[in-house]
Design a binder for these strands. Structure first.
Lengths: 193, 193
DNA sequence: CTTGACAAACTAACGGCGTTAGTTTATAAT
DNA sequence: ATTATAAACTAACGCCGTTAGTTTGTCAAG
């Protein structure tokens, strides 16, 4: 087998492709190696462990999500910005479910690099809320509430938890976003008081 | 080794114990068998597969969550009922994180038994909202919103996603619940109109 | 042009996993 | 006392991540 001179970047992007097309749960180093026409052990010339590769894919996933978010809020303010941000988040989770799962499965604890990458996700949310007159502390709380709603909705829909009732999932989603905007307006009133 | 006459129920409850104490991710049939002083292959006299055991543990987890929820809303109405329900949900996720993860990892799709068990989780939520004057359709949507907020919050906190900022997580949680109650009140107004 | 260093690839193996097939054997019912 | 049932066993298969040690292609310095 002629040597092909694979790089670390080649391996990471092959992993991303494979996860997107075949699913995170069925991903394995051996299968990845096989697709690169390599033995599994050879991967260890480029990566230290399966976890490290997983983290590397995670950085990509976070950067993609951030990109989509920043694009969504560009030139928008207040409710319009928040709705557009939510839509981008929702679409990302729906269109790239496996990559989204990678973000969720990232060990945020005890890994400074991932921890700081987490700020990339927070930043667009803070920007979208900037048009509201809120204290810095309120924004920190509200950012958590926003992420909870979005993540909770996406992952439960993906898991099939919303099939008990025949009502439209899109309608539920819009109601959830409306709830958050109500909370934003309510918080603004409190901040003024 | 004297035969101990293990039953399916023995195995399920040993699995529950093991998951609660050692964590879902480190659970394995071989380790479970070892704790029961049995070979792994012997487990197959009682269960068909690892997935089946997982599902069985899931039924237990759902019933426990439902029990906690029903207890929380007993004799309460409207905001008080919803807040108490949310607290029970939150406490369950925090105090029994591994069992909670089992619920999340249940394959809701393509398994009728689990699908119908999902109703057990919905029911207390519908009851808690019963005091509000809402249409049946509104309740179906709001139930999804409630679960999204709760699940999103619990799983992100558990994953360590809320460590970017030093503000109190409990305060964020209360703000999230307040947001949901605002949405309930707002929906009620719309229903009357 | 040769030589030497580096790193990309290899083979072989370990211990772990879920699972299957086929076998023994204790217990409970006839 | 005999027999049927099912709880347990052994042995093996094919996955998995990972490590150690080895070959070999490539590329740069002498």
């Amino acid at each position: 087998m002629a040597r092909q001179g694979l790089t670390r970047a080649d391996i990471v992007s092959a992993a991303i492709e494979m996860i997107e097309s075949e699913g995170l749960h069925s991903f394995s180093l051996r299968e990845l190696a096989s697709r690169l026409h390599i033995k599994a052990a050879s991967l260890y010339n480029h990566i230290k462990s399966s976890d490290e590769l997983h983290t590397e894919v995670g950085y990509y996933a976070i950067s993609e999500l951030k990109r989509a978010q920043l694009e969504a809020i560009a030139g928008k303010e207040r409710a319009e910005a928040v709705e557009s941000l939510a839509d981008a988040y929702y679409r990302f989770g729906k269109e790239r479910p496996e990559i989204y799962k990678v973000i969720l499965s990232l060990p945020m604890v005890k890994n400074d690099a991932i921890h700081s990458a987490g700020f990339d996700i927070v930043e667009p949310i803070m920007t979208a809320m900037a048009g509201y007159h809120l204290t810095r502390e309120q924004m920190m709380h509200l950012q958590r509430v926003f992420r909870s709603i979005m993540h909770g909705f996406i992952s439960q829909e993906e898991a099939g938890c919303f099939r008990q009732f025949p009502v439209d999932v899109g309608d539920s989603y819009r109601m959830a976003v409306r709830g958050f905007i109500l909370l934003l307006e309510n918080s603004e009133k409190e901040a003024r008081a």
